[in-house]
């Protein structure tokens, strides 16, 4: 019985195995980036960036149809352009990053929807908006794996300046020049992982497997390393459970995965030992010292 539900779908169907591989790889790269997004109070920036990659992916689609490599490259170019322009404007003018990013991503999103609707069918539009984790081909899986590997290596390299820029940006500026490059490299990682999530979950939900696991981790861990591990674990478990849910119901896989992740988030919000709601309502007797 348990075997039939939890394992059999993946043994019987290749597209389920591919989907599982895709989701696991997404979790490894996306969740740690999501934790940094949360700690830098940039969770919504991630969401905005997800919309910003749309015109690039759409142009890739226009030029070569539903070719995932072309869409990836296009998405990366559009995402980098918006991220770097917004970052530069924030650093060089009085405008803060959120406002400058909002301006660029709205422009980008409008452009993207225009391009898709000029050429594509409604099915294409659905694919772009919601992705299709059950249709990952070899090339796309490989692209996702390469992106996740790059993410983990780069994150390890910029870890120290990134943490320092989160905690005490003024101090980092006073002792090192690494702050700005680390920030730009991090924005690049955000874009790479959004493009990754884009294939499986679409432009609307791509940020879900990054931001939600990070939120979950905050309720279970007090230091950043544990937070990373909890986030990755939460993303893997939710991704797997979402695929199973989607297999046995009529729920499409993208929304199923994000729904499960959101459910885990709600449970963490209630039961998490670090500032969870139940813990706050019933803190137990106060200590002696």
């Amino acid at each position: 019985m348990m075997y039939d539900v939890l394992i059999a779908p993946f043994v019987e169907f290749e597209f389920m195995r591919r989907a599982l591989a895709g989701v696991l790889t997404l979790a490894l790269g996306g969740a740690p980036v999501g934790v940094f997004l949360m700690l830098r109070r940039m969770s919504l920036v991630g969401d905005a960036m997800a919309h910003a990659i749309l015109p690039g992916a759409a142009i890739g689609f226009l030029l070569s149809g539903l070719n995932l490599i072309a869409m990836t490259v296009g998405g990366l170019i559009a995402g980098f352009t918006v991220a770097i322009l917004a970052g530069l404007v924030a650093r060089m003018t009085e405008l803060k990053e959120d406002a400058s990013l909002a301006a660029f991503y709205l422009f980008s999103l409008a452009l993207g929807v225009t391009i898709v609707s000029i050429r594509g069918t409604n099915i294409d539009l659905l694919h772009v908006l919601f992705g299709n984790v059950l249709a990952l081909d070899d090339q796309t899986l490989l692209a996702i794996a390469i992106n996740a590997t790059v993410t983990m290596i780069v994150l390890a390299l910029i870890w120290r300046p990134l943490v320092m820029e989160c905690v005490d940006p003024l101090f980092l500026r006073s002792v090192s020049r690494a702050g700005a490059p680390a920030h730009l490299a991090f924005l690049a990682l955000v874009v790479i992982n959004l493009v990754n999530g884009f294939h499986a979950l679409g432009t609307l939900l791509a940020v879900g497997l990054m931001v939600l696991p990070a939120g979950i981790a905050r309720f279970w861990a007090r230091d950043i390393s544990t937070m990373m591990m909890v986030a990755v674990a939460a993303a893997i478990v939710s991704g797997y459970a979402g695929l199973v849910l989607s297999f046995f119901t009529k729920v499409p896989p993208g929304p199923a995965i994000i729904l499960v992740t959101a459910f885990v988030y709600l449970a963490s919000l209630l039961f998490g030992p670090v500032s969870g709601l139940l813990r706050q309502m019933f803190p137990g007797r106060h200590l002696e010292a």
Partner: peptide, 29 residues
């Protein structure tokens, strides 16, 4: 600085925070 721009909610320990002072000795890696 007079007004430190420190994110006090960031999950980092006192030990690790003070260790930042060694950055010029240890470098980034």
């Amino acid at each position: 600085p007079q007004v430190a721009d420190i994110d006090r909610s960031f999950p980092i320990s006192v030990f690790d925070f003070v260790g930042m002072g060694l950055l010029r000795r240890t470098g980034l890696f």
